[in-house]
């Protein structure tokens, strides 16, 4: 089978680039929509026009961000057709459903109420306007549910059957796809991390106002609401992150081993709290995986299996097998996968020849090994190992920042309660850069999820390298640089418009 790896790599680069770009805007939408709903609720409750001015200020920034988030998201969906048509053919029956529901159900909901929220001031009643703002927040996060159901299915494919007649996976149980435990833990973790990021965004701009000595009352109020939301959200993000890691350990043990740099499985396995990987380490060799490391004893066993004494498999166990622990080697899975591919080809040939007896025999043989069919496309066992350094460092950056954020929110809240927040010259610069740190944590999380999933597009079933469209790489190169230029212009436009609105500050409508 001839595979143009340069096409695969360019298609991956294009998706990674456009997805990470899209993710600059999405988490801000997920969280800022709720913050706007809080601000407007306080305005409706108090009738104080200062809260109306504050609400409109944050809503303007929300609107700028929302527009570019939508534009960059549409590009992603088109790529399933242009660059990943084999993927769309093989799993489109399942993967397409949540994407369509997201567009028809959730996005239309948020888009409709978005119009009322933006253009409905003084045209609809106060309460209906407030209801619209809440619906934008609910709709935005409903959109995220469906996208994360689709991504959760890529990480843990459930609720489908393989149709050997068409060589496609078909939806068998919709509820199983929607309530996939990986999708649920992914949604609550991702959505609440958006709450956290939006709270940091509000801290950043409010800190800037306090440093500049402008709009002090508005900045102090914004800081209190954002700090309460951020403190609760960051605690919840840690809780759901633990649950997401548990699901990874159960469903994607290779990804867990990669993000922890664990080569040799252990009982009472430790977590590497911090460390530098040995760049020359390869699966199966005897080198130490780390140049330096700081470990927390037993913690990985507890995180992965909810038991201190449990065994956590390492990369070597998963690649070369571990009889004692009942882990099958990748080489054995590859052999079964190749057999499944051959049996499927025989089945199709027999169908063409109208030889039903031969077809039934081939189908029975195929069904014995069909779960391994994806492995049949791997060239060697080590190909089942994802890149180690990228998910390892991304995971540890995300966790370190995730530990810092609740402390930052607590400090802002503490000094707000004391009434001295505007005088804290050491804290405000931290608030000023916190939005950027939040963005780094956001992108790191997705890098862990998606790079750690390699070499699979659908985990254990469909390798990335056979998912692309049969195109020459130059086609993807052209669109890659085209998107790069357009997206950079969009980002520059957003930053420029936002900075202009921030420098204008809230309008005084009294």
């Amino acid at each position: 089978m001839d595979i143009d790896l340069s096409m695969v790599n360019w298609a991956r680069a294009q998706f990674a680039f456009t997805a990470m770009y899209h993710w600059i805007f999405v988490p801000l939408t997920l969280g800022l929509s709720f913050l706007c709903a809080f601000f407007e609720s306080i305005y409706v409750r108090t009738g104080n026009k200062e809260w109306l001015n504050l609400t409109k200020f944050w809503m303007t920034l929300f609107g700028i961000n929302f527009a570019i988030g939508v534009a960059t998201g549409i590009i992603l969906e088109f790529q399933f057709g242009t660059n990943w048509s084999n993927y769309s053919w093989i799993v489109g029956d399942i993967f397409g459903a949540p994407l369509a529901i997201e567009g028809i159900f959730a996005f239309f909901l948020e888009a409709t109420f978005f119009a009322v929220m933006f253009f409905g001031w003084n045209r609809v009643s106060k309460k209906f306007h407030l209801f619209s703002t809440w619906m934008v927040a609910v709709g935005s996060n409903l959109s995220a549910i469906w996208i994360l159901v689709a991504n959760g299915w890529m990480q843990n494919p459930v609720g489908m059957l393989f149709n050997p007649e068409t060589a496609r996976f078909e939806m068998h149980n919709f509820a199983e796809v929607v309530f996939n435990p990986v999708a649920v833990s992914k949604f609550v973790h991702t959505s609440s991390s958006g709450f956290l990021f939006a709270s940091l965004f509000v801290l950043t701009i409010s800190s800037w106002f306090l440093i500049k000595g402008r709009h002090l009352q508005m900045a102090k109020r914004s800081i209190i609401v954002a700090s309460v939301f951020g403190l609760l959200a960051s605690s919840y993000v840690a809780f759901t992150g633990d649950e997401a890691a548990y699901e990874v350990a159960q469903k994607q043990p290779m990804k867990l081993a990669a993000i922890e740099g664990l080569y040799k499985g252990e009982t009472r396995a430790p977590i590497v709290a911090a460390g530098i990987l040995n760049p020359s380490k390869q699966p199966g060799d005897d080198q130490d995986p780390f140049l330096v490391e700081v470990k927390i004893p037993w913690a990985l066993s507890l995180l992965a299996n909810r038991s201190l004494d449990s065994f956590v498999p390492g990369i070597d166990d998963l690649v070369y097998g571990n009889k004692e622990q009942g882990i099958e080697s990748v080489a054995s899975k590859i052999a079964k996968g190749k057999k499944a591919i051959n049996d499927l080809a025989e089945f199709k040939q027999a169908r063409k020849e109208n030889n039903n007896q031969k077809a039934e025999l081939a189908l029975a043989q195929f069904k014995k090994n069909q779960d391994y069919i994806g492995y049949g496309y791997l060239d060697k066992p080590e190909e089942a190992v994802p890149p180690i350094a990228i998910p390892y460092y991304s995971f540890h950056i995300m966790v370190a920042l995730g530990t810092f954020f609740p402390l930052l929110f607590a400090a802002f809240l503490f000094y707000s309660l004391k009434g001295t927040i505007a005088e804290k010259k050491w804290l405000l610069p931290l608030g000023l850069i916190s939005g950027l740190l939040g963005l780094i944590a956001q992108e790191s999380g997705w890098v862990v999820a998606e790079v750690g999933r390699q070499p699979w597009a659908i985990y254990g079933l469909l390798p990335v390298k056979i998912s692309t469209t049969n195109l020459a790489a130059v086609n993807v190169q052209i669109t890659f640089f085209m998107f790069f230029a357009v997206f950079t212009l969009l980002l520059a436009a957003e930053i420029k418009i936002m900075l202009k609105q921030i420098s204008i500050g809230p309008k005084e409508e009294l």
């Binding site: 609550v188 209190i224 609401v225």
Partner: peptide, 30 residues
């Protein structure tokens, strides 16, 4: 666990609003 996570998700949103009101009152910024 799924139900607990979804319940807490809603609790975080409601508690954030209620908690903000409480602290804004306390600091006389409401």
């Amino acid at each position: 666990m799924t139900a607990l996570m979804l319940i807490l998700y809603v609790v975080v949103i409601i508690a954030s609003y209620k908690g903000s009101i409480f602290i804004l009152k306390k600091t006389e910024l409401l």
